[in-house]
Amino acid sequence: MQLISCPWCGPREEAEYHYGGQAHVAYPHDVGAMSDADWADYLFFRDNPRGPFAERWVHAAGCRRWFNAVRDTGTHEVLAVYRIGEPQPELGTQASR
């Protein structure tokens, strides 16, 4: 059972969290002017990298707050967590946790 650090509560077991998909996908401006293809791209398409990936998580069985996390999708290691509205931290070669 992996430990994930909630930016509000600290390290808690992964079962307390729910996954919320890719982070920093901004809601488009003026959606009425968008083509169907562009809207569909926003709606259905997300990145799927191997390696560090910024994601939304929610501490569902804890403080119920959403936050962002950078997770290595190859190792599941959570490299950084940060609150909504904070910029994605720069990750050096040494992972911060």
Partner: peptide, 13 residues
């Protein structure tokens, strides 16, 4: 409730 919370916290804080 989860759905509303997600929007309140992430899209429209």
């Amino acid at each position: 409730l989860d759905w509303l919370e997600e929007f309140a916290q992430t899209e429209w804080p």
